[in-house]
Amino acid sequence: MNDNRFSGTDTYIADDDLQMAVNAAVTLQRPLLVKGEPGTGKTQLAEEIARSLGMPLHEWHIKSTTKARQGLYEYDAVARLRDSQLGDDKVKDISNYILRGKLWEAFVSDQRPVLLIDEIDKADIEFPNDLLQELDRMEFFVYETQELVQAKNRPVVIITSNNEKELPDAFLRRCFFHYIAFPNHDTMKKIVKVHFPDLKKDLLQEALNSFFAVRDVPGLKKRPSTSELLDWIKLLLAEDIPVETLRGKDARKTIPVLHGALLKNEQDVHLFERLVFLDKRNAR
């Protein structure tokens, strides 16, 4: 139907439902809000969409101090004041002191761009509300220069959230939404294959087995996710760990080698060690 449909890339495995959500957002020119466990590739999604559809990517990373205004533009009054003191000619034109924000950059892009608004939940609770109009109409007004900035091409807006704050309903209504579920065993295999094409089959199998066993341990504070698995496999390869070390043991009974890549919380490691200890004692 449409030749620029997103269907995953050679380095990114996208499920059917994710593809559908992305394509709906691209076609209807509405923002796509992506949630999911940390490390399931939310941020990477925008990069991959940009790459596969051949669009430029604009990234706006949100911090707790980020204001919605900063995405549009900032008026550097201090610089102007200083220049006026120095008698600089630049000072006569106020537009010299209007600094463009990420949204502006994306709006004036000649080609239809991808705009990533990363971790929107980090910002103040009112932040999403301040962007409603801008994202809806894809335009905003610069008061200092009395200029209306309109999007030449409505960007594909990808917004990620880690669920630290609930987002306002009015904002949600304007977005498409997708929750990246944790991949199952088969999808995970594909994902690892994409990142480590030369990985030996048996090592992959064993690594995945221990990985999912670790994830199943009840009560972990931070369950390892895709990015941790990939790091761990990278480590296993770098250290040249033989398959035998991983094989033949129930992951619940032993601590996997180099577990630091999987468990990032000392309480989790303690919990794990305690479970292993209990298991061993029971086995005796």
Binding site: D16, D17, M20, L172, F177
Partner: peptide
């Protein structure tokens, strides 16, 4: 705009992305 074909599975995903925000 024919984002989804007449496949019910596609429709399921599309309707979910549009209507459900949590």
């Amino acid at each position: 705009k024919r984002v989804a074909s007449a496949d019910v599975e596609d429709f399921y995903y599309l309707a979910r992305a549009c209507l459900i925000k949590d």
